[in-house]
């Protein structure tokens, strides 16, 4: 089972965005002809975070979501404001531990599906509770 390192949900720093410049540096002497065409820099926080108060980052441990593009050591952006629906990738709490899986909610069946044929789905027995902690909205890979 893919367990998140619960030491790692990182509250996202808001207000200090990382800027990605889309425009080359300034040259002395001759005014840049590009000045009139300056672009607003892309703010990664804007791109990745819809609800700043409800967004947390988590580092993934394990390979059970490999087919969904989430590998070991990747960082996922988790939004707690989004309502979990069938088919969404979620962070769930199962028996007190975090796990990242795809939520299956159809035909009266509730289960958590792994995105890797080597891993079995999590089906719930009587008395077991499933709590969806948040919905994964994107995945950050660093090479």
């Amino acid at each position: 089972m893919l367990i998140l390192d619960y030491n790692q949900p990182v509250p996202v720093q808001i207000g200090q965005p990382i800027f990605v410049p889309l425009y080359s540096g300034v040259r002395a002497g001759f005014p840049s002809p590009a000045d009139d065409f300056l672009l607003k820099r892309i703010d990664l926080s804007d791109e990745l975070i819809k609800h700043p108060e409800a967004t947390f980052l988590m580092r993934i441990k394990g390979h059970s979501m490999a087919m969904a593009g989430i590998d070991d050591r990747d960082i996922v952006v988790v939004d707690k404001a989004i309502t979990p629906e069938h088919g969404k990738i979620v962070i769930a709490c199962v028996d007190g531990e975090f796990t990242c899986k795809q939520l299956y909610l159809q035909d009266g069946v509730t289960k958590l599906r792994a995105a890797n044929p080597d891993y079995a789905d999590l089906v719930f027995k009587d008395g077991q509770t499933l709590e969806v902690w948040g919905v994964v909205t994107s995945c950050i890979k660093q090479f």
């Binding site: 030491n7 790692q8 509250p11 720093q13 200090q16």
Partner: peptide, 14 residues
Amino acid sequence: RTPLQIESQNTSRA
């Protein structure tokens, strides 16, 4: 202590 990391090293000492 829950070893939570609030901000990365390079943002605090910019």
